[in-house]
Design a protein around this nucleic acid. Sequence first.
DNA 1: CTAAAATGAACGAATGTTCATTTTTGTGTG
DNA 2: CACACAAAAATGAACATTCGTTCATTTTAG
Lengths: 208, 208
Amino acid sequence: MADDKRRAILYATLCLLSERGFHGFSMKQLAERAGVAAGTIYLYFRDKEDLIRQLYQDIISEVARRVFVDHDTSLPLYEQYRRMMLNLWTFHLECPEIMLSKVQFDSMPPDLLFGQRGKEMAVLLDQRDDVLDVFKPMMELYQRGRDSGELKPFSDEMLSALCIDPVCALAREHYLGLLHINEEQLSAVIDATWDAIRWHPQPTVNPV
Amino acid sequence: MADDKRRAILYATLCLLSERGFHGFSMKQLAERAGVAAGTIYLYFRDKEDLIRQLYQDIISEVARRVFVDHDTSLPLYEQYRRMMLNLWTFHLECPEIMLSKVQFDSMPPDLLFGQRGKEMAVLLDQRDDVLDVFKPMMELYQRGRDSGELKPFSDEMLSALCIDPVCALAREHYLGLLHINEEQLSAVIDATWDAIRWHPQPTVNPV
DNA sequence: CTAAAATGAACGAATGTTCATTTTTGTGTG
DNA sequence: CACACAAAAATGAACATTCGTTCATTTTAG
């Protein structure tokens, strides 16, 4: 009945966003891609920004669901980490539109993605926390690693930049055909990012 | 005389591109920001795409100039690497517009940045090679590292994803105020990226 | 006074959004 | 089962703006 039109519009938005960017596609193009009339979009979404906002919420929770699908806190940290990174890789290749849209979301003003521009600040902050809450398993892994001395004493953001960003970047280039990464290489890359964040007993200096 | 208008237009383009994206600003806004009339832009650039193309060439060579400003092949690899990363960090904080525009360029169709859409393929490939040529010192560092066994046997693209992407990502978040990184932390991050790409004598496994 | 540089009003096309109209859906009645 | 009919859902032409680009005109420089 009704909700699958909403889904169709959201998916078409995802595709166009990843292809053309937020200002790069028109509502008429979106309507055509989704197989609905232009006016129909406004039955489900207030305006173009609201559309992006709802899409963002959708994607965030979907990514988290997939990355932590086989999450198991009883495993050693390295094993937990490896699973997450493999899930991240697989998910990115299965849903390249989501992977490609990440860049677009990153380059948007934050108040477009969260809360309603100037209205109740509390709601805004709550929504923002909710989004981050979805990735709690990752943050808990970081915390346990820092506490046990297995990981370097970096902040969550620094650790993420060292391990998640490279994998996302490589998945993107792999999908675009700029390079090819087989299973063995992927394994080596995950180990390399683990090398980046894990605490090394001996100091990192130039071995001359 | 004439060329400083061209520079003003290019700089205004850079600013607006980093703030709003390619489709996110109009030629009228650009004219106002650059302090010229709308028609003047078309004296120096064929159209909006040509403007972006010329800006891209400009930026690429400027980045390379700054990152390799004190390049010295006689130094140990680690020291060369550290210098490049420090230069990259400094440059990004001094020219945040360039740093922020990187994401925009990355998400553009390649034929917008290189060559003239369908005309002479040879020219297109040449220009592409020229762009990559600018970063030759980095590629040579990779090659020497692989040859000597100091670095992991990864492709240039894989190594770049492991060391350049994290530093760029952190510089961006630092500039946007999402986190703060002091000199000591920056040094530790550079070492962490070096850990990611350098060859480790003992195998990377979970120490249980 | 001439040639080059710069201007900004004006162009047709395209933008995001609205709303009067049409189509579909769900339900009660003969 | 057929039909009527009101409510809900969907439509797409029309709206005022704004877009990238042009070019007749004005300003500047030598």
